[in-house]
Amino acid sequence: MVSEEEFGRYETAWCPGCGNFSILKAMKKALVMSGLAPYEVLFVSGIGQAAKAPHYLNAHVFNGLHGRALPVATGAKLANPRLAVIAESGDGCTYGEGGNHFLAAIRRNINVTLIVHDNQVYGLTKGQASPTSEEGFVTKAQPHGVLSAPFNPLAVAVTMRAGFVARGFSGAVEELATLISLAIAHPGFALVDVLQPCVSFNKVNTFSWYRKRCATLPPDYDPTDWEAALHTALEWGEKIPTGVLYRNDRPSFESRFPVLDKGPLTNVRVDRESYGEIIAAMT
């Protein structure tokens, strides 16, 4: 049995009171619930405050570029499908800079778990609007308030029939841990968008703002009902649903490559006989 301690304890670069701390806590719990040892997990992150999270636990880590967590995670999963690959980053990184990769990962249904710390703001660059910032949100970079409509990641993911779509709240650690563990267990692309208060730059969407609104989906909610899930994904305002909004059992992307049944690509050896036949056909 792995324990939470095995995932370590590190000093972080986050502001005291930040919502990231409880996401980290929930993540460690989820890894324990999943029965994964540190060496069985690869975290891939982008750049931002959220993207630093993998540095604060024990696992394999590839902390890459802003926006590019998903393609790196996709390549890593394709090279070694036995690794549990978790992409973790912020809302700006994932939905802004990496928006195209988000769409492509959903379409592929690559078995990567995507955890987005959604604080509706660019934390690391000091408080500019992010794709999920609400219209009218005032920042130094948006002095007249955000003019664009917010991006709804869950509605987009459900519309595209992503493999697994969930919303968590960093103020509800136990529920979040369960959601993350379910996402890890899902054999396809899994998104957990985590509502994460940023105490330094988002004075609107605070802990108490979320606490008032977040409501766990009822036990009889059927996440396999796509149309109901679409409606649920569009709910945002006085009530914000949390839980597994949608899931399906599309085969994972990597399961379509017969060569990967044999394990990591690194173990494949050049088949010189077949190679000779390919060349012979070219003479």
Binding site: P71, V72, T74, G75, A76, A79, V259, L260, S274
Partner: peptide, 30 residues
Amino acid sequence: DRMGLVVEQAEDEIAAVTMAIGASFTGAPS
């Protein structure tokens, strides 16, 4: 298929190169 390679058409060149880096990090010459 015959030679045991994985080849993927990526969503853009940034994805192509970063996917290759992810695969290479995990031990697949890319």
